[in-house]
Simulated assay, not measured.
Amino acid sequence: MFDHVKFGVCDFQVSKRFYQSTLKPLGITGYTDWPPLGIEIYDPDGDISLCFYQSAEKPAPLHIAFTAKSQQQVDEFYSAALQAGGKDNGKPGLRPNYHESYYAAFVIDPDGHNIEAVCHLP
């Protein structure tokens, strides 16, 4: 549906460490620095990337959901996010109000964005 998403962050180095640590359990390990334009983080096998840059503007909070290949990846994402400074916004678990096998976890990143990892597999 999209090629990349790009947004501003208040503290580039803090966000860079947060996202690199948090997304690693999901297999999202590729990154390219584009000074002064920011960073691009991507799944080495994929075509979609997340980009962010230093900004003095405080953007409205985003909700970004990343695909996990297993419930274990969701659990590892959540743990890594908390260790990297994220705040709990929904522990890993089934969310049957979305559908019966929707397994997700939610964290708030350093800029207040709601970051999710979700596995749709039963």
Rank of each mutant, 00 (worst) to 15 (best):
F18Y: 06
F18N: 02
Y19C: 01
Q20L: 08
S21Y: 00
S21R: 00
T22A: 08
T22G: 04
T22F: 00
L23A: 06
K24N: 01
K24T: 01
K24G: 00
P25F: 02
L26M: 13
L26D: 08
L26I: 09
I28W: 03
T29K: 01
T29M: 00
G30M: 09
G30E: 05
Y31M: 01
T32N: 15
T32S: 12
D33S: 06
W34L: 13
P36R: 13
G38R: 05
I39Y: 02
E40T: 06
I41S: 10
I41F: 03
I41G: 04
Y42E: 07
D43Q: 10
D43F: 05
G46C: 05
D47P: 00
I48M: 08
I48P: 01
S49V: 02
S49P: 03
S49R: 08
L50P: 06
L50Q: 13
C51G: 09
C51N: 11
C51H: 12
Y53I: 11
Y53P: 03
Y53H: 11
Y53M: 03
Q54Y: 01
Q54P: 05
E57Y: 10
E57D: 12
P59A: 14
P59K: 15
P59E: 15
A60I: 13
A60M: 14
P61F: 09
H63L: 15
H63V: 15
H63C: 15
H63T: 14
I64A: 04
I64N: 04
I64K: 04
A65C: 15
F66N: 06
T67W: 11
T67S: 13
T67P: 08
T67K: 10
A68W: 01
S70P: 11
S70M: 11
S70L: 12
S70F: 05
Q71K: 15
Q73L: 12
E76N: 05
E76D: 12
E76V: 01
F77V: 08
A80C: 05
A80Y: 00
A80G: 03
A80I: 03
L82D: 12
Q83M: 05
A84Q: 07
G85D: 02
G85Q: 03
K87T: 15
D88F: 04
N89K: 14
N89P: 09
K91Q: 11
K91G: 02
K91I: 08
K91A: 12
P92F: 02
G93A: 03
L94Y: 10
L94F: 13
L94N: 10
R95F: 07
P96Y: 11
P96T: 11
P96L: 06
N97V: 08
N97F: 07
N97A: 13
N97C: 05
Y98M: 10
Y98K: 05
Y98R: 13
H99W: 09
E100D: 14
E100G: 09
S101N: 14
Y102D: 14
Y102W: 11
Y102C: 12
Y103S: 14
Y103P: 12
A104Y: 07
A104T: 12
A105M: 10
A105T: 10
F106T: 07
F106C: 09
F106K: 11
I108A: 13
I108M: 12
I108F: 03
